[in-house]
């Protein structure tokens, strides 16, 4: 067991009323898996991710990574956010170097590593630009390069492509899959997009709101280079729609 979420509950009190954000969440994840946390907004998927990444402490229960309880964030598991979190006053290169500054003292080494990852996400040539000069998709690529540069074992991604247009989003999904495959990362990816989850995940953790619970865990047994238009893909996607009760009852009349 690589990541173990054990009976995690998150509650907060609002106007003296107790709200359950997450209720009795247990989940195990193996190394190298690509997990999508899928659910409507308010189902606590981002909260669960935050608890795994160490940004918040659960009210009850514990998250273990490699057997050790998670207490605070660390550079071995990097989180990528929807709004990128790039520092607008730094160039692309310097943004990617941010996490390296503690570990690597030599400037040349840092620059070399940063260039390697800028190259990996397909942004070579833009290293001297500032984030403000880049499109949303390119900015998220910078954030991915920055995360990968510290060579983390796990990537936590919190709706990273939520603000991007459909086409850019698909391109980034393709590239993310390739990169994760190449670098053998374990990825926990939060999304509310069924297609996105079906395309990326080895397993989809379907969550429901009020209180946030795991509704179902769906294995997607498709090869890595998936085709969004294949019948396998559509069948897998169908299964998720079914879980959300979003399939229309079959009332079509056929005329032959």
């Amino acid at each position: 067991m690589y990541i173990e979420v054990k009976e995690v509950e998150v509650q907060y009190t609002e106007k003296k009323e107790q709200v359950d954000v997450l209720k009795n969440i247990s989940l195990t994840i193996e190394q190298g898996e690509f997990i999508c946390l899928l659910g409507p907004s308010g189902c606590g998927k981002s909260t669960l991710l935050g608890a795994m990444a160490g940004f918040l402490t659960p009210t009850k229960g514990t998250v273990y990574i490699k057997g050790k309880p998670v207490e605070r964030p660390c550079a071995e598991y990097v989180t990528i956010f929807q709004n990128y979190g790039l520092l607008p006053w730094r160039t692309v290169e310097k943004n990617v170097e941010l996490g390296l500054e503690r570990m690597i003292k030599s400037r040349e080494d840092r620059a070399r590593i940063a260039m390697k990852y800028i190259d990996l996400v397909g942004l070579s040539g833009s290293e001297k630009k500032h984030p403000g000069q880049l499109s949303g998709g390119m900015q998220q690529r910078v954030a991915i390069a920055r995360a990968l540069a510290v060579e983390p074992e796990i990537l936590f991604m919190d709706e990273p492509f939520g603000a991007l247009d459909a086409i850019t989003r698909m391109k980034l999904q393709d590239d993310l899959l390739n990169i994760c495959h190449e670098t053998k990362k374990t990825v926990i990816f939060v999304t509310h997009d069924i297609d996105e989850a079906t395309f990326l995940a080895d397993r989809i953790v379907v969550m429901s709101a009020d209180p946030g619970e795991i509704k179902n865990i769906v294995n997607i047994s498709m090869p890595k280079n998936r085709d969004r238009t294949s019948s396998n893909f559509l069948r897998a996607r169908d299964k998720i729609f079914d879980i959300f009760h979003m399939k229309k009852p079959d009332t079509v009349e056929y005329y032959i």
Binding site: F55, R72, P73, C74, A75, V78, F81, N83, G85, L98
Partner: peptide, 14 residues
């Protein structure tokens, strides 16, 4: 200051 910046700093162990 954007909460994300603080989280990034925390994440990279600054």
């Amino acid at each position: 200051v954007d909460v994300t910046y603080r989280k990034v700093a925390q994440n990279f162990g600054l």
